[in-house]
Amino acid sequence: MESLLSQFTILSNQALQDKNFDPSTVEDLMKLFEIEAYKSWAAMELQHQNEVKEAEVAMQQAEDYLDSVMESAMDEFRRFEEEMERMAKTELNSLVETAEGARRMGNFMEKAATIASKRYIEAALNSATASMKSAWKGLSTNKVHPS
């Protein structure tokens, strides 16, 4: 482009000094300017397209990376969730076993209390029966031998 400007300056000086100067020479030079401008525009357009492609590639790489990170995070979350569920089931089973043990112990203690109360009642009845027999014996002995 600089050489075209130099050539244009030379032609301008010739046009001012030479009365036989052919103006079509300037027109030819202007066509060269137009071609150079088009080449420059085409080069910039190509550079722009290359930059767009590079940006698209970078964007795709970023999306792929984000997808990878998100998938890893989701996998880790699933593993965490499974571990928490396993721990919750283990804790629940432990509580159920403890509750079942407490229920069995309660049933055992209820049976033991029932047996103990029956034996207490039997012992009380036996004691009352013995006391009554003794009292009857004492009464009947007093009737036979009046003192």
Rank of each mutant, 00 (worst) to 15 (best):
M1L: 12
L4E: 02
L5V: 03
L5D: 00
S6N: 06
S6C: 05
Q7G: 02
Q7R: 08
F8M: 01
N13T: 15
N13F: 05
A15L: 12
A15I: 00
A15K: 10
A15R: 09
L16F: 11
Q17A: 04
D18K: 02
K19Q: 11
F21S: 01
F21Y: 06
D22H: 01
D22A: 00
S24E: 10
T25D: 04
E27N: 06
E27A: 14
D28A: 04
M30H: 13
K31G: 12
K31A: 05
L32S: 15
F33T: 01
I35H: 15
I35D: 15
I35K: 15
E36Q: 11
A37S: 11
A37T: 10
Y38P: 00
Y38V: 12
K39L: 01
K39W: 00
S40I: 15
S40T: 15
A42K: 15
M44G: 09
E45R: 12
L46Q: 13
L46D: 12
Q49A: 06
E51G: 04
E51C: 04
V52W: 03
V52N: 02
K53Q: 14
K53L: 11
E54V: 14
E54R: 14
A55F: 05
A55I: 06
A55V: 02
V57L: 03
M59W: 01
Q61I: 05
A62Q: 01
E63C: 01
E63F: 09
E63A: 12
D64M: 09
Y65M: 08
L66N: 13
D67A: 15
S68M: 11
S68W: 10
V69N: 08
E71C: 09
E71A: 15
A73W: 06
M74T: 08
M74R: 14
M74H: 09
F77S: 02
F77M: 05
E81T: 05
E81I: 03
M84Y: 07
M84S: 10
R86C: 04
A88I: 07
T90A: 07
T90R: 11
E91Y: 11
L92W: 06
N93P: 00
S94H: 11
L95C: 01
E97L: 15
E97Y: 08
T98A: 14
T98H: 03
A99H: 04
A99S: 11
A102I: 13
R103F: 14
R104V: 01
G106H: 10
N107G: 08
F108P: 00
E110I: 07
E110S: 05
K111P: 04
K111G: 05
A112L: 14
A113S: 13
A116G: 02
A116Q: 09
S117K: 10
K118L: 07
K118V: 00
K118A: 05
R119N: 14
Y120M: 14
E122M: 13
A123E: 01
A123K: 11
A124S: 13
A124D: 07
A124T: 11
A124P: 00
L125H: 13
L125N: 06
A128N: 03
T129V: 10
A130C: 02
A130K: 10
A130E: 14
S131V: 00
S131G: 12
K133Q: 02
K133V: 00
S134W: 03
A135P: 13
A135K: 15
W136R: 12
W136S: 11
K137A: 08
K137F: 06
G138M: 08
S140D: 15
N142G: 03
K143A: 12
K143C: 04
V144E: 06
V144D: 06
H145C: 04
S147I: 07
